[in-house]
Amino acid sequence: MVESVLSVGLELTDVKHRTVINCCACCSTAAGVMLAGLVSWALPNWKYSVSFAALSCFALFFFFRWFPESPRWLACRGREQEALAVVRRIAATNGSTVPPFALQVIQTVGKSKTDRRGFLSIFSSFNLVRNTTVLVIASSVHLLAMYSLVIAVSRLSANPFLGIVAQGLAKLPGHFMVNYFAARFGRRWSSVGSALLAALASLLIFCLLTEHIEGAAIVMATMLMQFSTVAGIGMVNLQSIELHPTCLRQIAACVEFAVAGISMSSLPYLVLMDDKRIPFAILCALELMVAFSVSFLPESALQRLPETLRDVAVFGRGQPYWSWKPKPALQYATG
């Protein structure tokens, strides 16, 4: 549900404001984690706490009427007039008008069937397969690390409810870090830095447990790790949305989270080991692998993003590996 809302929200946002929208949307998850800890503390009976979470989901139905559908998706489904209505609504919000040829463009998009091949579209080019594979690995490792901390909090903290609240609090600066560094230094190296920081935090927890140091030091270390993993997953989500064209965005997100869900089935076996240090040694190694892998993803900041499978097959070619601050592509700069 979170991925679907974020995907459509970023489709309706221009390139310059995608990081801001991503930050605002993801900060709600941090608030939800903190609320989950406080509600579970106030309602220790699991039936009441789960019922509260279920009832909270019904509040979403009151906001659907304000959330527009993706115009490109509507056009691809033959609903051109609805797509045009959404485009006009966006133009009115931005204080502009829709050009007279907008309907013709929408009809052209709707008639195009070359990009509608479903799941098999992922294998349409080596570039797309490579990017998707790297993003699948990064999502799986970051989510595994994130939820490992949630499960391990009962073994590392005297008060597990406050431990979860502290981890939720650490998510907020993580999302703001994604917004700042992704906009200033680009997506690629910011994603690498997040994974390296998560590996360093895992190593720190491993050392603290080795020296039998607990209490506030462990809580601060878990907050640092939660901060870095949240920044990492936020960056990977942003890269996934930008590196996949609209026709493949939701399919790629489903593949990433499906594989991540399978990997998270190992959570109890990983976290609940007799030796509490081993899980963090494993997570440290996995985060280092992610840092190395995501460094080969193309930079998508300030670039004209791929719209078709043909675009994504060549996207990122010619970009130097040892580049720092992203520079606008010629097409982006000239509009």
Rank of each mutant, 00 (worst) to 15 (best):
V33F: 03
K111F: 00
V141L: 08
L243D: 02
Q107P: 00
E11Y: 02
G232I: 06
P160T: 09
V134T: 06
R304Q: 14
H212W: 01
G95L: 06
A92I: 02
S70W: 04
M289F: 02
R188K: 04
L35Y: 00
P44E: 07
V2W: 00
A281W: 06
E11F: 00
P100F: 12
M235C: 03
P328H: 05
K276D: 03
A59E: 05
E69L: 13
F63E: 06
A291K: 04
K325Q: 05
G163R: 12
T222A: 09
I164Q: 09
Q226H: 13
R89G: 09
L197F: 03
I278A: 13
M235A: 05
W189Q: 07
A182V: 04
G95P: 03
P68V: 10
L243K: 01
G193K: 05
S228N: 06
I122T: 14
V153R: 11
F52D: 13
L288W: 01
N131L: 03
I106Q: 15
R304N: 08
A42M: 10
C23V: 10
L149P: 03
R18G: 09
A199K: 04
A85T: 10
L135M: 08
R187A: 01
L330Q: 09
I122S: 06
L60A: 14
R79Y: 01
L270T: 05
I213M: 13
S190W: 01
V314F: 03
R277H: 05
G168K: 11
K16I: 01
A152G: 15
Y321L: 12
V105N: 11
C284S: 11
P326T: 01
S265T: 10
L248R: 04
E214L: 13
F206V: 12
L305K: 11
E82R: 15
L120G: 11
Q226E: 04
F61V: 11
E242F: 01
M34A: 14
K276Q: 07
S140H: 04
L135K: 02
H244N: 05
P71N: 11
R184V: 07
P245G: 02
P68H: 08
